[in-house]
């Protein structure tokens, strides 16, 4: 029997398999190149780039929690220019679609970084981060309101011809309404979810474990929340959903795919095992072979719900 076809198409870009490394956990690829063959990944999403450099938040920036972790990095990055000069050319040596995550404080900043990134070589798509819980302005500010989110995406759409993915936050009232609004405004795929707002306290010092008090929860702890949202949104929109949230194994990834995700992104799991994206790709292939499927698309959204 021939090997199953793992290729998927997301926002018009062709991925050799549906496994992506999630923004913020994989740097710009270089940091993990010693541990993993980047050519094997479906795609890589960079850590969020802003137009100007950002220093990020004070430490402690992370804390381990039951089956998860909190982070409040605060979008630290060296800015679009340094990214284009140092990181993009290095990534060009790989057969790997590079999705650049972009952020900003206001519409103008999002547009400036969009325009800059759109005129440099080696970018396959943009992922608009409107879901970072760890910055004062922008970020989640745009992701909470369907109209604001749609206005921003529509503006960004006019600044670039690159495929546009929008990453949504779970910290909202109606995730479906926001997804539908950004799709109408031009999003060609939806990434969800970003981290869930959370907090932890050290009872001995009586201090919050994060210097920023509140941060974003990731890891297996948030998987059921992410899965529920992916299922709800995938039914309601006609562009692909990239499922993210606590995926650490092929079984986790397959849950998202069955629930309707056209691709998945692996984030926090990489910290524990840099090989996890590769193991997930291999595990998905094994599942397809074992169950007699020729291609991954046969199981996207194949969830069976009893009447």
């Amino acid at each position: 029997m021939s090997r199953p076809d793992l290729a998927v198409e997301i926002a018009g870009i062709k991925l050799k398999n549906p496994v992506i490394t999630a923004s913020g956990t994989f740097g710009y690829g270089r940091e993990y190149a010693e541990f993993i063959d980047l050519n094997r990944l479906g795609a890589l999403v960079t850590k969020t780039i802003t137009f100007q450099p950002r220093s990020g938040n004070p430490v402690p920036r992370i804390c381990e929690t039951p089956s998860g972790m909190l982070n409040s990095i605060g979008l630290q990055n060296n800015g679009a220019e340094a990214f284009a000069a140092n990181d993009l050319p290095w990534l060009a040596q790989f057969d790997l679609p590079v999705i650049v995550s972009i952020g900003g404080d206001d519409i103008d900043q999002y547009c400036r970084v969009t325009k800059f990134i759109s005129q440099v070589e080696g970018v396959s798509a943009l992922e608009v981060n409107i879901s970072c819980p760890n910055v004062k302005f922008g970020g989640l500010g745009f992701g909470r309101d369907p109209r604001m989110a749609a206005d921003l995406v529509a503006k960004i759409r006019t600044c670039s011809t690159l495929p546009l993915i929008v990453k949504l936050s779970p910290n909202v009232g109606d995730i479906v309404a926001i997804a539908q609004a950004v799709v109408r405004a031009g999003a060609q795929a939806i990434s969800l979810i970003n981290t869930v707002l959370g907090m932890a306290v050290d009872i001995e010092s009586k201090r919050p474990r994060l210097k920023s008090v509140v941060g974003g929860l990731s890891g297996p702890a948030i998987k059921p929340i992410a899965l529920r949202m992916v299922w709800e949104v995938a039914k309601a929109i006609d562009v692909p959903v990239i499922g993210i949230g606590g995926i650490a194994s092929a079984a986790d990834a397959l849950e998202f795919i069955l629930a309707g995700a056209g691709a998945v992104a692996v984030g926090t799991a990489v910290f524990m095992d840099p090989q996890s994206p590769i193991k997930i790709i291999e595990g998905i292939e094994e599942y397809l072979t074992k169950n007699g499927y020729d291609k991954i698309s046969d199981i996207v959204g194949a969830l069976e719900i009893a009447e």
Partner: peptide, 21 residues
């Protein structure tokens, strides 16, 4: 410092230096 990735990717374990984090 508290670390997550350990390889320079996640920017959790930063220290303030004369030239930034």
């Amino acid at each position: 410092e508290l670390m997550a990735c350990g390889v320079g990717a996640c920017l959790a374990c930063v220290v303030k230096t004369k030239t930034g984090f």
